[in-house]
């Protein structure tokens, strides 16, 4: 069985004046369809760069990235856009809804770029909004919704294109703990329904909700295993200041 995500010795190196900064310093990993993976690490650990590469927003300096068996590490911008559209669904910390567009128009966006007919766009957007329980807000503007509702709209948008991977970047970061928990529960539900979810976070307690955890530090994988709090916690807490906050 081919892994859905496969990193083969990936490097991302930024040239800062004379020195080279290794944002990702040789990461290899495999993620299979149906997994619920959390990538955890403090800021500057390389997890965001990791997410950008998984999300096809960026390409590695060295190494190969196979997405669903296809090498995407040397694709051009247009090909990457196509991959993002077909294979990935993003959930961002700041929801990233377009304020001028209605909830429904926001959810339709990936379908619009996929070239679906208007009728199909509307039908699938409504179906997706139904799943997050916000079908009645379809004609509202994002600003008329609460934070939790906006995040659910962004989940609906991520689901609308029926992607292979749902990529959630600090999805609870801007929410209070109760709404954050609701969002996480919803992600778990999606996982139970068979979706592959990659969660990026700096928060160990949130990462622990996943079924597998990859911990990165200084651009390297320092832990890759099940999210067992007993095994996981001592490592997680070692030198991690963000947990204390």
């Amino acid at each position: 069985m081919t892994p859905l995500i496969e990193f083969k010795d990936i490097y991302k190196i930024y040239q800062m004046g004379d020195s080279a900064v290794h944002a990702i310093d040789g990461i290899s990993m495999q993620v299979y369809s149906g997994e619920f993976l959390a990538i955890v690490g403090p800021s500057g650990s390389g997890k965001s760069t990791c997410m950008n590469i998984i999300g096809c927003l960026d390409v590695p300096t060295k190494g190969s990235y196979f997405l669903d068996g296809k090498d995407v590490s040397h694709m051009n911008d247009n090909e990457l856009a196509e991959i993002r559209n077909k294979k990935l669904g993003f959930i961002f910390q700041q929801y990233n809804l377009i304020p001028k567009l209605t909830v429904q128009q926001n959810v339709e966006l990936p379908l619009l770029y996929a070239g679906l007919s208007e009728k199909e766009q509307a039908a699938r957007a409504m179906e997706s909004l139904e799943r997050v329980g916000l079908a009645d807000k379809a004609k509202n503007l994002p600003s008329q919704l609460s934070g939790g509702q906006q995040q659910r709209v962004s989940i609906a948008r991520a689901l609308a294109g029926n992607p292979s991977i749902i990529l959630a970047d600090e999805p609870t970061g801007a929410l209070d703990s109760k709404t954050g928990k609701d969002v996480l529960d919803f992600l778990k539900k999606l996982h139970q329904e068979g979706n592959t979810i990659v969660l990026i976070t700096h928060d160990n307690t949130i990462a622990a909700q996943a079924e597998r955890v990859i911990r990165v530090a200084d651009g390297k994988v320092v832990y890759d295993g099940i999210a067992d709090i007993r095994k996981f916690a001592p490592i997680a807490h070692a030198g991690d200041t963000e947990v204390e906050q």
Binding site: G55, L57, D77, N78, A81, E82, R84, N85, K86, F90, N96, L97, I98, L109, P110, Y113, A114, R157, G161
Partner: peptide
């Protein structure tokens, strides 16, 4: 700019 970023992350190509 942010809107453009969002659109691109959702699969909008340069020409879109």
């Amino acid at each position: 700019t942010r809107e453009i970023g969002i659109r691109k992350s959702l699969g909008a190509k340069g020409r879109d």
